[in-house]
Design a protein around this nucleic acid. Structure first.
Lengths: 343, 343
DNA sequence: CCCCCTACGTAAAACGTTTTACTAAAGTAT
DNA sequence: ATACTTTAGTAAAACGTTTTACGTAGGGGG
């Protein structure tokens, strides 16, 4: 393995000089020397030892991304955006898949924090149970950025956020404007903040339009296909009137879709369905599910940008960024018919 | 930041002793001393500096995973399996998303190889164009393992592989046994080996059953939804008889599905469709697509296991592992009707 | 009483960089 | 000619570990 020392010897200069040239520091090196060094570096195909460099600079140029489940297309997009941004800026990205396990996540943070990585992007959705750790990190001035993780206590943590409440409000409004009055809602796991925000958006929209919030039309889901299926089935069998269904995320909407089809109703003629997330599913169902688009890739790019600013000692231009969401109409909603012909 | 030196001072012993105790080396340390050291370590919440350690051990305990597209559920599963296995064994995983770009992949290999990671898992599918790099790595004894990357020249590289040819053979046979004789086929990008193997499996099955291989029924696809859609449409409009369609991967099968539906044919009554990969799509379409299951997660676990063996100087139990594939019947195929009622 | 062995431990080198503090020579202004 | 500045470079410390080679005290066998 060729080292800087070897380069120096071959060039007849000191290690320092080589280091300076390679790092573009200290401008008092003659062009001739520079050129000679670069030539030898190329010849020997020398690449500086990142570990040794980290040792003295105290920087690894690595960051970590903690996600609950990389198989979820939303987080895959996050990972993609984060990784690309890192590499573009000379960083590398550790992937940490917590599998929704809090202990795993805690352990990641504990180990990584020390010195393996210069900072972290944390997306896992969870309760506020261990804000303690984050407070500690804040005190230590350890750089980290949230993606879609809300905490009242941690107002100082930089982060990027989706406009969940407004999004849910608007998509509900979309249904209301189509004439729907009885709109069922399937929540996400309410321990996560964005699930709560989406619920709140839904409720506010109803209230603002003088519609009652009927608790019987609200079911607790889990952001998974099976949960959407199950809760929808329950709703259908409950024999309560509703002409539209809002599932808190697309995966549950897909489950709902299947339940509705099995029940024998036409979408959207007999029942309108909307989801949330706009996950990129191949276009195999007709109609596809109308949903709110969350710009995951873009959000990840932003999060990494903020993080690298923090790491490199710059003040980020913005440290809390909210992303408004866009409704993507894919045809799974229709005006309410005067006479509802089921149930 | 607390260092080993501080621990040593507090315990009144030398740095060496602390290091030995922590690494469980050199057995001549009294229990009393050990205990004292562990207590102080706990108290100060000391975690050894991984960078300094790497400096001397020449090991980073990091490996890299290079994938073409983390958004593809197949590779997301690979990533998940790889990451979990790493962490279980005290390693961390760099995610490298090449975005199907050869130059990006090359650059990854170049940079990572030096010293950032102890080894690599390489899954990107591509031509044999730069086997040179791999030959170099082999010579250097640099540890790396392939997942689903075939190369005749690189027979010595350890790897895990899916039984593409047999899988394609068997799923074609499945169609033949249902009475289908005119079976259309959409290939993957033929620069990738597994696309070629799948094509070959299809052709062999036809020949073994004395059926002609009709070149007009074979279309070149690209493993993407849009490609499947486009090629299927072309096939349908060509006005050539076929009663079954085999798409080389599920994504293309989804595209095909949509094209067929739009054309007004019933699946599977009028046309049988099969895919490949068994990617985990929420169950929203009826019927879903019959496919071959590739145990991605399991394959990744195996690949990492082999890699860590190599890194840690053990001889892997197996260094080339083939995974036979299982047909997953999801109802998108049916017996051929006597009279085909379309076209 | 001497020698050797074992248990317990230490000092110092090494890993490959970056960075700090310094020097020597040449040019430049007075 | 003198003093100062710029240019071009160097030697050595530092980063936090692991590891190698060594040291010492006490006990047991001869």
């Amino acid at each position: 393995m060729v080292t800087i020392k070897e380069i120096a010897e071959r060039c007849g200069v000191s290690i320092t000089t080589v280091s300076r040239v390679l790092n573009n520091k200290g401008d008092s090196i003659s062009e001739k020397t520079k050129e000679r060094i670069f030539r030898v570096v190329d010849e020997l195909n020398y690449v500086p030892n990142a570990v040794a460099r980290s040792m003295v600079t105290k920087r690894t140029n690595n960051i970590a991304l903690i996600v609950p489940d990389i198989s979820n297309p939303f987080f895959a997009d996050i990972a993609k955006g984060a990784e690309r941004t890192c590499v573009n800026r000379g960083f590398h990205l550790f992937l940490c898949n917590s599998d929704m396990d809090k202990e795993v996540e805690k352990e990641y943070i504990r180990v990584l924090r020390k010195r393996l990585v210069d900072g972290m992007i944390i997306t896992t959705q969870n309760t506020e149970e261990y804000d303690v750790i984050f407070e500690e990190m804040l005190e230590d001035n350890y750089p980290f950025v949230f993606i879609e993780r809300y905490s009242d206590k941690l107002a100082d943590v930089p982060g990027v956020f989706a406009g969940n409440m407004d999004g849910a409000y608007n998509i509900t409004k979309h249904l209301i404007e189509l004439g729907h009055k009885d709109i069922a809602f399937i929540t996400g796991p309410l321990v996560t903040s964005n699930a709560r925000y989406r619920l709140e958006g839904y409720q506010r929209a109803l209230k603002d339009h003088d519609l009652p919030v009927n608790p019987k039309l609200i079911r607790n889901g889990n952001y998974k296909v099976a949960g959407g299926y199950r809760e929808t089935k329950t709703l259908l069998e409950q024999n309560i009137q509703f002409s539209a269904l809002f599932a808190s995320n697309d995966l549950m909407a897909f489950g709902a879709y299947q339940a509705v089809k099995e029940y024998g109703l036409e979408i959207p003629e007999q029942l309108s369905i909307v989801g949330f997330d706009n996950i990129d599913m191949p276009g195999v169902i007709e109609p596809q599910v109308t949903t709110m688009d969350i710009p995951a890739y873009e959000m990840a790019v932003k999060a990494v940008t903020i993080l690298l600013d923090l790491i490199e000692g710059r003040t980020p231009k913005e440290s809390k960024v909210y992303y408004p969401l866009k409704l993507v109409n894919k045809g799974s909603t229709a005006p309410k018919k005067e006479v509802q012909d089921f149930a």
